[in-house]
Nucleic acid binder design. Structure first.
Length: 420
DNA sequence: CTTGAGTATGACGCCACAAAGAACC
DNA sequence: CGGGTTCTTTGTGGCGTCATACTCA
């Protein structure tokens, strides 16, 4: 048993809220982030199943565990036996999904329970409430759940793929919740001493009925993508790369990997840099979720690889540079998420091998330009007109301000004389 | 742990005027 | 079209002010 929930202190944490810098159990995550509109916007991701202290960024399909970058590297980067494990990127989620939405955004639920079955959905809720209030729950990875989610995806029709892959990628951070969802050996009304207490000291009501569950859980039935990264690229877990020298490389390489895998149409490749085709589904679906408020063109397909070839490369570059310098320009914003949204109406685009090579060349050129520009960047003040500087240096001032010639001064730069 | 006061830090505007650039003849 | 004149804009540095972050009791 590792650490405990930062909020209730009784449950094992499952999700990590970056905004709060807190590890929370599911119950507290729901309670905390349904408090108001701002907290609902907090971006959460899964907690690493190894160190229990860092937000997970990678999901190991074969081990059915979620790992932070460090643990992923330790577990997969060195070991030859496990380095070939299929992994996929875990993304953040925000909002306060309803029970139905939550069950849908937990993709591995599909392995065990058909979501469309209302009785099963109720079963999920019962189990969820059980586990949220039980310390005896087996929190380990779902070893007994060996059915390949990817295989299921491949067998689905297009509509099913859209639904399933979206919720998987967009909210795969919740995937370690599967073990508890698989459990059926717990009585529905079991509680124990670790039941979270409300602030007034009263024991929280255990949600053991569907109505109760909805009352406490269905706050905002909408998944929201708060920023560009969640929509199109680097997850928060990779944001540190933006401040590294290799940051831009990481970004471009990630796009390139996606582009390289883009020919795997209809095939869900479970690599960490998931197939571009799948990501395009994710993007489409994300618009579907909040279609009313985002874009009317729901039917149009956004191809992830299309955006990475030019617009996204520039966007990443721009945003990275803005992060480094702290400045932001109008073009930055025009070129980030919103400009990508403009691609909604564009036709599907499937790059050929020549396109990919061109993208690679463009990427190399962009990286080179970026590095040269970064190297040549100067933070110190640049004097454009030396004559004006010479003039300013010799001018007399009063409290730092220039004064008219002949007026009394308190500071003469040439003589350092002060009249006061 | 919270709160208020004090301190540190950075951004920004002000000032006059020579130089640069634009507009006009 | 080129040169001269006039007008407008730009840039320069030190200081004060303000806002924000931070520290500490």
């Amino acid at each position: 048993m590792g650490c405990l929930c930062d909020f209730c202190g009784g449950q094992r944490p499952m999700v990590y809220c970056r905004s709060d810098a807190a590890s929370l159990c599911l119950a507290c995550d729901r309670n905390v982030h349904s408090a108001n509109a701002l907290s609902r916007r907090h971006s959460r991701t899964l907690l690493c199943d190894r160190c229990y202290s860092q937000p997970a960024s990678i999901r190991c399909i074969e081990e059915s565990i979620s790992l932070c970058q460090s643990c992923d590297w330790n577990g997969h980067g060195n070991s030859t036996s496990s380095s070939g494990h299929k992994r996929q990127t875990i993304r953040c989620y925000s909002g306060c999904p309803s029970a139905t939405e939550l069950a849908r955004i937990w993709p591995f639920v599909l392995e065990f329970l058909p979501i469309e079955d209302s009785s099963c959905e109720q079963g999920i809720m019962g189990l969820l409430s059980i586990n949220e209030n039980s310390t005896s729950t087996n929190w380990g990875p779902p070893q007994h759940c060996s059915t390949s989610y990817m295989e299921d995806i491949c067998r689905m029709n297009d509509v099913e793929k859209v639904n399933a892959t979206n919720v998987h990628i967009a909210s795969s951070s919740m995937s370690t919740a599967i073990p508890m969802l698989c459990r059926t050996d717990q009585p529905a009304d079991s509680t124990d001493s670790t039941t979270p207490k409300s602030s007034d000291g009263r024991t929280k009501k255990v949600a053991n009925s569907e109505d109760d569950f909805y009352d406490g859980f269905a706050v905002d039935d909408e998944l929201t993508f708060e920023n560009y990264e969640e929509l199109f690229g680097a997850s928060h877990a990779h944001s540190e790369h933006l401040f590294d020298d290799v940051g831009i490389d990481s970004i471009f390489e990630k796009k390139e990997n996606s582009a390289a895998n883009s020919n795997c149409q209809g095939e869900f490749v479970a690599e960490a840099s998931s197939a571009g085709q799948v990501k395009s589904i994710q993007v489409k679906r994300s618009y579907d979720i909040s279609a009313d408020s985002v874009m009317p063109n729901q039917g149009a397909k956004i191809d992830y690889n299309m955006s990475i070839s030019t617009k996204q490369a520039r966007s990443s570059l721009s945003r990275t540079f803005s992060s480094l310098t702290g400045e932001s320009s109008a073009s930055d914003y025009q070129d980030c998420g919103m400009s990508s949204m403009l691609l909604v109406g564009e036709p599907p685009y499937h790059p050929t091998s020549s396109d990919i090579s061109i993208q690679a060349i463009n990427r190399d050129n962009a990286v080179m330009r970026y590095k040269e520009k970064k190297k040549a960047r100067m933070f110190e003040k640049k004097i454009r007109y030396a004559s004006r500087k010479t003039r300013a240096d010799s001018r007399r001032r009063v409290k730092g301000r220039f004064i008219k010639a002949g007026e009394a001064f308190d500071y003469d730069p040439l003589s350092q004389a002060r009249t006061y």
